[in-house]
Amino acid sequence: MARSNALGLFGGPKAALAAAGKLRGEGFESLDLISPIPLHGVEEVLGKKKSAIKRFTFFGAILGGLGGFTLAAGTAVLYLHPTGGRPIITFPPFLIITYEMTILLGILATVLGFLISARLPVFRERIYVPESAVDKFAVNVACDAEADFKRATEILREAGAEEVTEIAPGGGQ
């Protein structure tokens, strides 16, 4: 059998998390929890997640800082305007530009990091149940073989799934 997905729909987060934990324990690796709210305790069940967003923020901010200072100092050097023998590159005012640009690029890089690491925006169909944006909690598990699918369905039902559906590869229900 080709790869297919078992999708169990739960009425509450506890049952969904319990089902996800059990599936994980049985060796199902490709698991998704689809929920209307961020769930607390996902990390204990599905393992700790790491994201690259902080690196984006950090390097974006550094780039912004350097760029900001270069912009202010560069402009001052290019358009020379000596005032009373004072230095052309003056730190206190230029640090403010540096500060603002640090934050601006930090913000933009965070957004970029978010979009890349959350894999958004999406242009193809993916498995989705509209009820999970209201009050249902879905557990989506990818199965490689028929036997796996049966086992996953069993676990989902045992954990109290209101409904278990098979989703063919390609995403359509």
Binding site: D32, I34, S35, P38, L46, S51, L120, R126, S132
Partner: peptide
């Protein structure tokens, strides 16, 4: 979609 990964990010 509201997957756990998306919420985390």
């Amino acid at each position: 979609r509201g997957t756990d990964t998306e919420w985390h990010r």
